[in-house]
Design a protein around this nucleic acid. Structure first.
Lengths: 222, 222
DNA sequence: GAAATTTTATGAGATACCTCAAATTTAGGT
DNA sequence: ACCTAAATTTGAGGTATCTCATAAAATTTC
């Protein structure tokens, strides 16, 4: 009880004792290793996942090329888009880093949404945050060229995901390419270019942003 | 009262008299002409719109190029993504055809969502439908080349929007291009190609699908 | 109903990006 | 520690797509 309240924190406000017990009784904590797949596109969506530790990629498979739709960091839910609609996932989820998650029965969450308007509001708010993020991604991926897209990705990693100027990005070059909708070779070339131009400092997967203004400019001009 | 119940139909189930009255008192019906802008990116999101008649495009502006995120047909809501989150629209909406809409105060809708769990469920369901559609769009726009994207667009128009093999697509070539994330010239060239290859029959804005299998094949291979 | 604007159309040239190939480095498994 | 597989890197060549220019057709405006 203690642990889950600490992690879920803000999501469990205003729950009655009965509702809290319901969450407790219908949830398990799971650990995944880097590289492991949590859910597979087309698979049965019986649970919603809450990420407690680690980093996860949500991606779609198309022929043999993948596109990473979203990076999920601790504190976020995965699978909300299956609430009240599809019974199958329309995307896959895999761990970029060792991860710990709570897996919550989807029926439980449905019941909670229907019995607790404040929780429903929070879920709707979360889903709208996601949608807004997807709009940004669509614009980046479709309207900008390679440099702008990589700039967007670096800004996202620095500000949203790792919340630091300097971080281990964990993503492989291929992950980054799949996040930016480009070939791995292009991603590599542009990273090197940014490094040479002293926009970022890159050593393997370690990344340090040197100039946010330049990244923002690249993002802006596309 | 009669009119709105006919239009909103399925959305007003399970409402109490009081709630129905609340909808009635906080809603106006508006008419727009083809080409008119309903809401502008960055504008204040004070209302949710329910499309009763016509066709509307939801689009984002980037530098001087637009991208049409979604086509909205009668029976759908616009602006749900502002419920419980942003107070400004992060996209614009404009009429592709003469349209009639109900404009509903956003606070009213919030109240209803919080007081009627069934309605909340429906809203969540709707938002998830949208998200699912956006995933499809991201895949089409980022993973497929021109022919696949135009094929996707035609299939969408035929099946989702007009629900007919033969229809007046209303969109200009430029709209179609902005829906497919390509230059107007490319859209025109590929439409002509499809016409010459007898995949569709095109005369101005009139469009007749001749071979769904071929379109699906083009969509599949990308 | 004529003028002005927008839309549609087509060609040629430019270029951003991908694909393929081959080498080197790094990571993973036993 | 070794072997294998995966990830990273770089170059060269090809191509899908865009841009620009120009013109005809269609639509809107007054």
């Amino acid at each position: 009880m203690h642990l889950i309240q600490k992690d879920f924190g803000k999501w469990l406000n205003n729950f009655t004792e009965e509702q809290l017990k319901m969450v407790m009784d219908n949830q398990v904590k799971l650990s995944y290793n880097k590289g492991e797949i949590i859910s597979k596109q087309g698979g049965f969506a019986s649970h919603i996942i809450f990420l407690s530790e680690g980093l996860i990629k949500i991606y779609k498979e198309h022929n043999d090329k993948n596109l990473i739709l979203k990076l999920v960091k601790p504190g976020e839910f995965i699978g909300l888009s299956s609430l009240f609609s599809k019974s199958t996932f329309d995307y896959s989820a895999a761990c970029i880093d060792d991860s710990k998650v709570y897996s919550i029965n989807i029926e439980t969450l449905k019941t909670l949404v229907k019995s607790n308007p404040d929780f429903a509001e929070k879920i709707i708010w979360l889903m709208n945050q996601n949608t807004s993020q997807y709009f940004e991604r669509i614009m980046s991926l479709t309207q900008k060229q390679l440099h702008g897209r990589i700039a967007d990705a670096i800004l996202h990693l620095s500000r949203e995901i790792f919340e630091s100027t300097s971080f281990n990005m964990l993503l492989t070059r291929r992950d980054l390419a799949e996040f930016c909708g480009m070939s791995t070779e292009s991603a590599i070339r542009i990273l090197k270019e940014f490094h040479n131009d002293k926009i970022v400092n890159i050593d393997g997967k370690m990344m340090e942003v040197i100039s946010f203004p330049l990244l923002e400019r690249l993002s802006e001009v596309g």
